[in-house]
């Protein structure tokens, strides 16, 4: 394992949270971003669930990639193997949430099992491999990406909560204004683009 300097870890973290924010810059994981962002509380819950799944999925997919797929020369099975890992993790998270917080389980609803097919989770796993990160960098990137997702969804939920009471033209009420807001937020996140050279 190549030694990773502290500065590189910091750069990866910053880059995945702000510069290459998964929702705002890479446009991955839009489904839960729009679906579960009506209340800050559920948005935080969703963010926590995604963080857990992403961090664990990053590490496990790293192990699978370098311990199983590459030695056996079956790298083409990457997608299906990663999906398997993610699906399992999501099931696990679902059980834990159902046990520990039934109200969160109810409000997350169908979006919780939908993390399974959340492209952000698969995206981070595949990007880790593409960027040829080490194990530590992979973990940092996974956590960073998930924190970025959480940041975006919580901010968005905060805005949407206020949008509920705002005087919005009838035709823009609900999803139209939410999509416009998301677009504006995305432009705002573009401002971070020059942060890392």
């Amino acid at each position: 394992m190549v030694a990773t300097s502290v500065s590189k870890i910091f750069i990866i973290l910053l880059s995945s949270i702000l510069v290459n924010n998964f929702v705002m810059s890479r446009f991955l994981g839009i489904c839960p971003f729009l679906g579960v962002s009506k209340k800050v509380e559920t948005a935080v819950g969703m963010g926590a669930a995604v963080t857990f799944v992403m961090a664990l999925a990053s590490v496990i997919t790293y192990a699978i990639q370098y311990a199983i797929l590459e030695p056996l020369g079956i790298g083409y099975l990457q997608t299906i193997a990663f999906i398997l890992v993610i699906a399992t993790l999501v099931q696990f998270v679902e059980m834990v949430i159902q046990k520990s917080s039934p109200s969160l389980y109810q409000s997350l609803g169908v979006y919780l099992p939908l993390i399974t097919t959340n492209c952000a989770v698969l995206g981070v796993a595949i990007l880790n491999i593409q960027e040829q990160y080490t194990l530590l960098e992979t973990l940092i990137n996974g956590i960073g990406a998930a924190l970025g997702f959480t940041l975006a969804i919580v901010l968005f939920a905060g805005i949407r909560e206020r949008l509920e009471t705002a005087p919005i033209p009838k035709s823009l009420k609900g999803f139209p204004i939410a999509l416009i807001t998301a677009g504006l937020m995305s432009i705002a996140f573009l401002g971070f683009q020059g942060l890392i050279k």
């Binding site: 199983i68 797929l69 099975l77 299906i80 398997l84 696990f92 834990v96 046990k99």
Partner: peptide, 23 residues
């Protein structure tokens, strides 16, 4: 074989988890 073993491990893991976290 590799996918099969992976699925088996995950499946057993989930089964155990469902027992532990049964509501």
């Amino acid at each position: 074989v590799s996918l099969g073993i992976m699925s088996l491990v995950f499946g057993v893991g989930l089964a155990l988890a469902s027992k532990k976290f049964a509501v």
